[in-house]
Amino acid sequence: MVENEEQPKKRTRREFLQQLGIVGIGSALGGSAILAALNYDKSKTDGQRVRVLTAQNELHEINKDDLHKVLPSKHGKLTYLQQQGRDGLEGKRFVMVIDLSKCQNARKCMAACQNAHHLRPEQHHINVLKMEETENTPPYYMPKPCQHCDNPPCVAVCPVDATFKRQDGIVLIDNERCIGCRFCIAACPYSARIFNWAEPLNAQVEKDVEYNVELNVPQKKGTISKCLFSADQVRLGKLPYCVSACPNGVYYFGDENEDTVTNGTTKETVRFKKLLEDNGGYTLMPELGTKPRVYYLPPKGKTVPFNEQDREEASEHLHHS
């Protein structure tokens, strides 16, 4: 932010506070910088020290005077959670690798995801599809989350910046801003987006819960939802909900910058590029230029047979309606 560059002294302190998760308004407007500057002078007096837990799960000690309550979203301003959700994690480039040869359609990923994001049974952030490419190629199961495209059409078309791309590669939604035009649904070639057509599942209970962009909870009627790469989990250094729920070792998740991905089942960490190289990794519909951050390993050497009942459903998409 510009005002920070002009005041290098205050910058570190403000950043520090933001990390702690206790600065109230991460406002895009200059006002917050002034506020921070004022508080800076005030905090020079040694007051009582208190301990706070950061969003990264670390314990810090700070002056009690520096504690600020997180303010709810005001018109045009973002809450701390919203700002943090937009900023993303510095220095990271998250990727997912899905090994199709291991998927047995256990659907534990779908259940864990729906549970975490408070979705209805027909709402899928991740959907295990039954696929068949041609008559002569074998069918396979394909879990399909949002591809977190590096060139995301959904973000391009959104009229209000309610869906956005973060520096760590994750594409998120701010359902406090979404106007429900559903242009992003039309634009997403992977059918990754869902809409809250009715009151969400837990609308009543979650009335007063503060909105967390990184979890997209509480869900809101008339707004979009989709896979978030479990941004709330990865902030804590954990694996996404689906990844850790899979019993069959289908998912790897990690950081492209570090060139490592971790298998959610075996917790084994491997080289990302090497994994793709050794197994013929690919992305879905690369010809569209969306540049997905979700990679697939082909269903080669599958040991578990495809369920016969699913075959018909898989071939439906193949044959012309």
Binding site: G76, A156, V157, C158, P159, V160, D161, A162, R177, C178, I179, G180, C181, R182, F183, F195, N196, K221, G222, T223
Partner: peptide, 26 residues
């Protein structure tokens, strides 16, 4: 009438983004 959140119509003016064809259309 098609909007999920017509109450947020003003967002188009407050947060409008020039790369969205909806903004051009409006």
């Amino acid at each position: 009438s098609d909007m999920g959140r017509p109450d947020r119509l003003l967002n188009v003016f407050i947060h409008g983004r020039i790369q969205s064809p909806i903004v051009w259309d409006i």
